[in-house]
Design a protein around this nucleic acid. Structure first.
Lengths: 229, 229
DNA sequence: GGGTGTGAAGGGTTTCACAGCA
DNA sequence: TGCTGTGAAACCCTTCACACCC
């Protein structure tokens, strides 16, 4: 087994590469030509050594004693994350969250294009959201087929999320981002990522309570735990 | 004050406890009185052994050979996560995402109450969103003081997020949930959690590309990595 | 000197296997 | 017998320290 021309990149690293890429875009706009790992790390909110390790998965891409070329690193990261080609996505469930996502500029600028918006509600179907007409969910399979979408985003109520997911999988979608508060079950080879907004708040509240409702003697412990982030 | 505080609970566990709590609510509605770790784990999308370990941080709360009492475990989890008291939150930035969050039912049912909505846009200020009137961002300090909010949620553009954050911190908010795509810097003792929607999509796209654009020989490796979730 | 690249150490989290009890 | 509770192992990721090169 003599592979590893491209080393495998840890998922945690991939997530941070996307952050670095955004910071670099800002620096490029500002006219900067070089950055050090320290500066880049502080802008991204991470440890400098960790940043260097992250970048090392792409092979050497800096100059010792100098730093990184903003433009060069940007290209390197863009390429590693899949180039600039547009990625067609379908979005199912055009409620408040769904329509917020549908015209969130942050997606388009990163190469994600919503090519299909679907909903069950007759009051929503037919409306324009983010420059696209909302279509009835019955047309899901047809939309995926005609747009060749490879990513599905689910912002439906929890009750119907699994059935929407099954339909996406059945027409070949292998990457799904799920905002519905349920665990989706999918066959092997399909990748689901879940974003649970209320869980984030709940964790925050827990840490908050832990800090405040704790006897003085235990406070240092809490502080240490909280400071980890 | 809680009586038994034998162990500190890992943050990863806290996040999952919130998920278990939601699943249990569904089971209770369905009239179930008991669950096994296996069933609960599959509904939550986690490993059964891991679930038992998570629950063990609360002390023994099941019956060997039988399982867990739905009602009993629900109370236990609710208590561990901070009881049922309402937590006042302020939300700054009432754009699409902000208004989606402002009347997301998932928050209210978990004890999170938005008590202040703020924005700079004159076209937005004064409108009713989620049953609350949007107030000008100049009143931020006054709103926090009068509502005693302890949690701040930032859904502003990236450029102003840091200044909003600073103002929240200056009036005593120690828990902040940040949706703006920047790394916020805060003094020690303040807890910031970041949710970056486009990073989630980017990771999904990366894994997708990795699967498809990979030579057959490497495919098994990719599958193993992807199947981790 | 200054800053990158990277092995090694450390900490946290997941998985496994099995002891223990209704 | 069935399922919980939990030490121990395995794994992943972060952090540190320093060699190395401009």
């Amino acid at each position: 087994m003599s592979q590893s021309r491209p080393r495998i990149i840890p998922e945690a690293t991939v997530a941070r590469l996307a952050v670095y890429l955004r910071v670099l875009a800002g620096l490029a706009d500002g006219g900067r030509s070089h950055v050090s790992s320290g500066e880049l790390a502080s802008a991204a909110g991470v440890n400098p050594a960790g940043l260097r390790k992250d970048l090392s998965y792409l092979g050497p891409c800096g100059v010792r004693g100098v730093g990184y070329s903003v433009a060069g690193l940007r290209d390197r990261l863009t390429d590693a994350l899949g180039g600039e080609r547009s990625r067609p996505c379908v979005l199912i469930g055009i409620g408040r969250l769904g329509s917020a996502l549908a015209d969130y500029a942050g997606f388009a600028s990163r190469g994600f294009e919503f090519v299909g918006l679907l909903d069950t509600d007759p009051a929503t179907v037919g409306h324009q959201v983010g420059g696209l007409r909302v279509r009835p969910v019955e047309e899901l399979e047809a939309v995926v087929a005609e747009t060749r979408a490879t990513i599905g985003v689910i912002t439906t109520p929890a009750e119907v999320a699994q059935s929407v997911c099954d339909r996406l999988v059945s027409v070949g979608v292998r990457s799904i981002l799920n905002f519905a508060p349920v665990a989706l079950t999918v066959p092997a080879g399909v990748d689901v990522r879940k974003v649970d907004l209320s869980v984030e708040l709940q964790v925050l509240a827990f840490l908050d309570q832990q800090r405040h409702g704790t006897p003085p003697l235990l406070a240092p412990l809490r502080a240490a735990q909280g400071a980890a982030r």
